[in-house]
Amino acid sequence: MARKAASLELAVLGLLHESPLHGYELRKRLNLLLGWGRLLSYGSLYHALKRLLRAGLINEVTATTPGVSRRQRIVYQITAAGQQYFGEQITDTGPAAWEDDSFNMRFAFFSRTDTEVRLRILEGRLSRLQERLDRARHSGRGGSGDDRYLSELRRHSIESVEREVTWLTDLINAERATDRSLDGPPGAPATEDTITSAAPAADATT
């Protein structure tokens, strides 16, 4: 739960880093960022905004909406402290950046990072998924007595992770190719096995 809250706060800071926004527009953009599989409630957003306000990472100003009613709205904007914090968090390449919610948010703001940061996060994520595949495949051995639907669920989970592994491998190769085109002669393309062996060591407790 704490990790999800931190990821949401990071997303809020990332969007406010681009421009000040009022709550409705911020929620709309966050929902686009989160994708179709998850809709953000107003309650979750305003809890995140309150935490960021208390921490001094954002502030709020009252703006008048143009038009006949000239209704006043609260607009949120990032502070200098918020910009510094966002910059530190978005370039953090530790194990927390590889987890499901954290990775998705960080990936959404990859344009704010350099190639080295992107590669370390992508390689770490790939390493984490390879661990999941190994556990899932191992747990499926000798499971001939499994319920049919349990077996189908396991198969679906494995195939989903395999698709993401392929996607990550392609992204890593693209990042490396771009880096080589800027810095030197090309080398051999990466494979899932070579990327995994080069990835930072994953946290064994996860």
Rank of each mutant, 00 (worst) to 15 (best):
residue 16 L to T: 02
residue 17 H to L: 10
residue 18 E to P: 01
residue 19 S to Y: 11
residue 19 S to I: 14
residue 22 H to I: 12
residue 23 G to S: 09
residue 29 R to T: 02
residue 29 R to W: 04
residue 29 R to Q: 11
residue 30 L to G: 00
residue 32 L to G: 15
residue 32 L to R: 15
residue 33 L to N: 01
residue 34 L to P: 00
residue 34 L to R: 04
residue 35 G to I: 01
residue 37 G to N: 14
residue 37 G to W: 10
residue 40 L to E: 07
residue 41 S to N: 15
residue 44 S to R: 11
residue 45 L to D: 06
residue 48 A to K: 01
residue 50 K to V: 09
residue 50 K to D: 12
residue 50 K to S: 11
residue 51 R to P: 04
residue 51 R to N: 14
residue 53 L to H: 06
residue 53 L to R: 08
residue 54 R to H: 12
residue 55 A to R: 11
residue 55 A to T: 05
residue 56 G to H: 13
residue 56 G to P: 07
residue 56 G to T: 09
residue 57 L to H: 04
residue 57 L to R: 04
residue 58 I to K: 01
residue 58 I to M: 04
residue 62 T to A: 12
residue 62 T to V: 14
residue 65 T to F: 09
residue 66 P to I: 08
residue 67 G to V: 06
residue 67 G to D: 11
residue 67 G to R: 08
residue 69 S to C: 15
residue 69 S to E: 15
residue 70 R to I: 08
residue 70 R to M: 14
residue 71 R to P: 02
residue 72 Q to P: 05
residue 74 I to M: 13
residue 75 V to K: 04
residue 76 Y to D: 01
residue 76 Y to G: 01
residue 78 I to W: 01
residue 78 I to P: 00
residue 79 T to Y: 08
residue 79 T to Q: 11
residue 79 T to E: 09
residue 79 T to F: 08
residue 79 T to P: 06
residue 80 A to S: 15
residue 81 A to K: 09
residue 83 Q to T: 12
residue 85 Y to F: 11
residue 85 Y to D: 05
residue 85 Y to H: 10
residue 86 F to S: 03
residue 86 F to T: 03
residue 87 G to W: 00
residue 87 G to Y: 00
residue 89 Q to L: 15
residue 90 I to Q: 00
residue 92 D to F: 08
residue 94 G to C: 08
residue 96 A to Q: 10
residue 100 D to V: 11
residue 100 D to P: 05
residue 100 D to K: 10
residue 100 D to C: 07
residue 101 D to R: 08
residue 101 D to K: 07
residue 102 S to E: 10
residue 102 S to D: 09
residue 102 S to R: 09
residue 103 F to H: 06
residue 103 F to R: 02
residue 105 M to W: 03
residue 105 M to K: 02
residue 105 M to S: 06
residue 105 M to H: 05
residue 105 M to D: 02
residue 107 F to Q: 03
residue 107 F to H: 06
residue 108 A to C: 14
residue 108 A to S: 15
residue 111 S to T: 14
residue 112 R to C: 09
residue 113 T to D: 00
residue 114 D to T: 07
residue 115 T to C: 07
residue 118 R to E: 00
residue 118 R to P: 00
residue 120 R to L: 10
residue 122 L to H: 06
residue 124 G to T: 03
residue 126 L to R: 01
residue 127 S to I: 02
residue 127 S to M: 07
residue 127 S to W: 02
residue 128 R to I: 07
residue 129 L to F: 06
residue 130 Q to F: 03
residue 130 Q to P: 00
residue 132 R to V: 14
residue 135 R to H: 13
residue 135 R to V: 11
residue 136 A to F: 09
residue 137 R to F: 06
residue 137 R to V: 06
residue 138 H to N: 12
residue 138 H to V: 14
residue 140 G to E: 10
residue 140 G to N: 13
residue 140 G to S: 12
residue 142 G to A: 09
residue 143 G to H: 09
